[in-house]
Design a protein around this nucleic acid. Structure first.
Lengths: 206, 206
DNA sequence: TTGATTTTTGAACAAATGTTCAGTATATTA
DNA sequence: TAATATACTGAACATTTGTTCAAAAATCAA
């Protein structure tokens, strides 16, 4: 890759900066103004050089069509933003999305499930499984749940993280720690909502 | 905030999606094409509704001027990138930064210590403390370490995550699980390097 | 020195794009 | 029932914007 001249570099820098601030590439005229050029062709010819040297690409026949190559090849969606939910109700589980208390950002390399949410672990019922009260648990929705999976479940306004067990038309929420009871429900119990599978745990230590 | 109609929602979704894929907002005509409208005004009037309801903003006199409000207020630089280290040597601890195997991105709201690194937990010696083999542990360097803290330590080429205990000129690395031994060192042992305090645990579950 | 690259001006064209006007139809709300 | 919001079509206008032509001066390598 041939090196850039100072001017070319300035302009490429400006383009990158503009994109990160405005979420879209600048127009030729906007660059022109920034650098106080008298003619758009001052910019245009520098863009040509940048293109020839391979630092940018252009989409023909479109406006705001400058694409810096490094942005182009940047992995997409490498950060996943996951809503952190506080209050639940098993009868209107979807209402929970009105109880956002923030978002948790996760490296998409570690976690990239399309529909998911985060909760704060409500109790120490899964202590032996290494899940502690106040950990952040990230829940995958729309995933097949099998016996032995750790799930996030809501009954009424109470939320649990427990082992899932389904047997003879009954669903059991089984804790891993002593001092917590196994809860049992009928399979069609309208008062039980299984939010999804726990698939990531984040714990802050002091 | 007034709720959106289905059409309005479809179009807002498309705009968001387009931005995340193309790094710039779509034009009225691009939206028009996507939805197979015969007139750009079909889009335009829906954009007006979205604007009136407060879901988007427009920059007057510019092209590609739709700005979804949630993107507009997105904070910048709230992600911390932490190097993930694989091999260690207690004699040349700084050399470890040549053994990057990647980076881990963390929400700065959860973790924002300036000098830190990430490792993969090497064994189950801290199982009872809820730290399992293959978890990702994030280590704070340059932090005062006190008895009872969980630390990352290296002797020779072996890495440990253990409770730290200092007593009568001796340093002990104490496991929380049975089947693992407490290691002891002299305070000035050149063959022991305490990398820092474990301050975040991330665990992926299947 | 000579030719290529770079940087800039100035003017203009053509395509892309935001916007508006006029009108139809349906559903929702007061 | 009337008024309002919604969801379109069709055509046109005005601005923004990518691009091109012509030309001059400066830098830099061969």
């Amino acid at each position: 890759m041939r090196p850039l001249t100072e001017r070319q570099n300035q302009i490429l820098e400006f383009i990158r900066d503009y994109i990160s601030k405005n979420l879209k590439p600048p127009t030729v005229r906007e660059i022109c103004e920034e650098f106080k050029f008298k003619s758009t062709n001052a910019v245009y010819s520098i863009l040509k050089s940048l293109e020839k040297k391979g630092y940018i690409e252009k989409v023909i026949g479109k406006s705001r069509n400058i694409i810096p190559k490094d942005i182009m090849f940047k992995e997409e969606n490498d950060i996943k933003e996951i809503p952190l939910i506080s209050k639940f109700n098993s009868k209107n589980p979807l209402l929970m999305f009105t109880n956002l208390i923030g978002t948790v950002k996760i490296d998409a390399k570690m976690f990239d499930h399309p529909s998911s949410f985060a909760v704060i672990v409500p109790d120490d019922g899964m202590q032996k499984a290494g899940i502690f009260k106040n950990d952040i648990a990230i829940i995958k929705q729309d995933t097949k749940i099998e016996n032995g999976d750790i799930v996030f479940a809501v009954t009424g306004n109470n939320a649990f993280i427990r082992y899932f067990k389904s047997e003879h038309g009954k669903i059991y929420l089984v804790p891993s720690a002593r001092g917590y009871e196994t809860l049992s429900f009928n399979e069609d119990d309208k008062n039980l909502w299984i939010g999804g599978k726990v698939s990531l745990i984040i714990r802050k230590i002091s």
